[in-house]
Amino acid sequence: MEKLAFTPRVFSGIKPSGGLTLGNYLGAIKRFVDMQGGEFETIYCVVDMHAITVWQDPEDLRHATREVAAGYLAAGIDPEKSVLFNQSRVSAHAELGWLLNCVARVGWMNRMTQFKDKAGKNAENVSLGLYAYPSLMAADILLYHATHVPVGEDQKQHVELTRDIANKFNHDYKVDFFPETIPVIEGPAMRVMNLRDGTKKMSKSGESDMERVNMTDDADTIAKKFKKAKSDADVLPEEMEGLAGRPDARNLVNIYAGLSNMTGEEVLAVYGGQGWGKFKPDLAELAVEKLAPISSEMKRLMNDPAEIDRIMAKGANKANEIAQPILNKTFEIMGFVR
Rank of each mutant, 00 (worst) to 15 (best):
104 A>R: 01
334 M>Y: 11
63 H>M: 07
132 A>L: 05
48 D>I: 06
335 G>R: 14
92 A>I: 01
34 D>E: 14
323 A>Q: 07
243 L>E: 02
270 V>R: 05
25 Y>C: 09
244 A>K: 15
140 D>A: 13
41 E>W: 03
116 K>F: 05
46 V>I: 11
151 V>C: 00
57 D>T: 05
105 R>A: 09
103 V>N: 03
133 Y>S: 06
131 Y>Q: 06
264 G>A: 13
68 V>W: 02
210 M>F: 04
289 E>T: 11
142 L>W: 08
144 Y>K: 09
4 L>R: 15
97 G>E: 06
204 K>I: 03
48 D>N: 15
125 N>L: 14
177 F>L: 03
312 M>A: 05
283 L>P: 00
288 V>T: 11
284 A>P: 03
97 G>W: 04
96 L>N: 04
236 L>C: 11
83 V>N: 09
78 D>K: 10
63 H>E: 08
63 H>S: 10
147 T>V: 02
33 V>C: 03
314 K>E: 15
104 A>H: 01
239 E>W: 07
255 I>F: 00
78 D>L: 12
37 G>R: 06
243 L>N: 02
15 K>I: 15
118 K>L: 15
246 R>S: 09
264 G>H: 03
231 S>G: 13
327 L>A: 09
259 L>H: 00
323 A>W: 03
207 E>K: 06
234 D>R: 12
149 V>Y: 00
64 A>H: 02
48 D>W: 04
39 E>V: 06
265 E>L: 04
29 I>L: 02
142 L>A: 10
316 A>P: 09
182 I>E: 13
122 N>Q: 15
298 M>S: 05
332 E>Y: 12
266 E>G: 11
8 P>A: 09
55 W>K: 15
317 N>Y: 02
130 L>E: 14
259 L>M: 01
95 E>Q: 14
262 M>C: 08
190 M>I: 08
234 D>E: 12
262 M>D: 08
302 M>I: 07
